[in-house]
């Protein structure tokens, strides 16, 4: 559309493009560095010689992880919480968003509940009462402690509710005339038309569950119940090696640096796998949620 472009304009175009590409690539450099370390020889790593390309390429770290029961146990806990937590989030979000998307005429208590949920969303009580509550329910050391406290993601409810409200009323009324009750209406009209929004909120909750570590840290007493992020947090950040005893032999081939880098990378893989979907749907989601005008 811009046919006549001056040379200087083109140069600026290239400069901007180049600059942004550089910025984009440097955003990823730390991740590349981690990958390179995980694939490098331990001597090269402790000598600080590894940059963006592995030095002394080997797969020892990954081989070690494959045989590391604790890692996979934690991985399993994470998968379980994603499935249970994500599923519960989905059902509850839909069930809560639908009545809230009704008019006050159809559902007189709608505004009251709306305010209650919004208040619940912005109310963030301190960690001590929160812990006392959950331990009071005897949920400590059960998977439910990771699933139930966040089972109703109110932000997602609001996104979905707004989406429901934008569905044309005609669809609604047509179904009504056919004698559909609210359950049928939700099931056969609203859900099928809301696939993109549902995909968005589901991805939101999956990523949230996968990434959270703190609830695992304080609500799980038994380290066998740690989800993967908590396991990694204890290992890499809090520096509590789970491998004493075998450590001496292990150190002959690996250092905790290379091994930790490999664990960080393996923990990233699920996110990298869903990243294409994330990118598509999250962007839509943030538009739905943040800039509703």
């Amino acid at each position: 559309m811009f046919s006549s472009r001056s040379t200087s304009d083109r140069i600026i175009d290239w400069l901007i493009t180049g600059f942004l590409l550089l910025a984009g690539i440097s955003t990823l450099l730390p991740l590349v560095n981690t990958l390179a370390i995980s694939l490098s020889d331990k001597a090269a790593v402790s000598g600080g010689m590894v940059g963006l390309w592995p030095v002394g390429f080997n797969l020892n770290s990954y081989g070690y992880i494959l045989r590391d029961d604790k890692f996979w146990q934690a991985f399993g806990v994470s998968v379980l919480r994603v499935v249970l937590g994500g599923g519960l989030n989905f059902v509850l979000t839909v069930l809560t968003a639908f009545p809230l998307s009704r008019t006050v005429k159809a559902f007189p208590a709608r505004n009251f509940f709306m305010w209650l949920f919004v208040f619940g969303m912005i109310l963030n009580v301190g960690i001590v009462p929160w812990y006392l509550t959950i331990s009071g329910y005897k949920l400590i050391d059960t998977i439910w402690a990771l699933v139930l406290p966040g089972a109703i993601p109110i932000f997602n409810v609001i996104i979905l509710m707004n989406f429901f409200r934008n569905i044309p009323k005609e669809l609604d009324e047509a179904a009504r005339i056919d004698g559909a009750n609210p359950w049928q209406l939700l099931w056969s009209v609203y859900l099928p038309t809301s696939i993109p929004a549902l995909a968005t909120i589901t991805l939101f909750s999956i990523v949230g569950h996968w990434n959270s570590f703190f609830d695992g840290l304080i609500l799980m007493n038994n380290p066998d119940n740690y989800p993967l992020q908590t396991y990694i947090q204890q290992l890499v950040i809090a520096d509590r090696p789970a491998l004493h005893g075998g450590q001496a032999q292990m150190l002959a081939q690996l250092s905790s640096n290379t091994l930790n880098a490999a664990k960080l990378f393996v923990a990233m893989i699920p996110i990298l796998l869903v990243y294409p979907f994330l990118q598509r749907y999250f962007i839509r989601g943030i538009m739905l949620g943040a800039v509703k005008e």
Binding site: L92, L95, T96, F98, P99, L100, R102, A106, F107, P108, A109, R110, F113, L116, F117, G120, L123, V125, V128, P129, W130, L132, T133, I134, Y137, L148, P149, G150, A151, I152, I154, V157, N181, P182, W183, L186
Partner: peptide, 26 residues
């Protein structure tokens, strides 16, 4: 219909109370 709406919102409401308002009491 209204009853259905209440039933739908109930589970979320219970969890909201259990994990947001009960801690407020604590």
């Amino acid at each position: 219909d209204r009853l259905a709406y209440y039933v739908m919102i109930l589970p979320g409401l219970v969890l909201l109370i259990a994990f947001t308002f009960v801690p407020l009491v604590y």
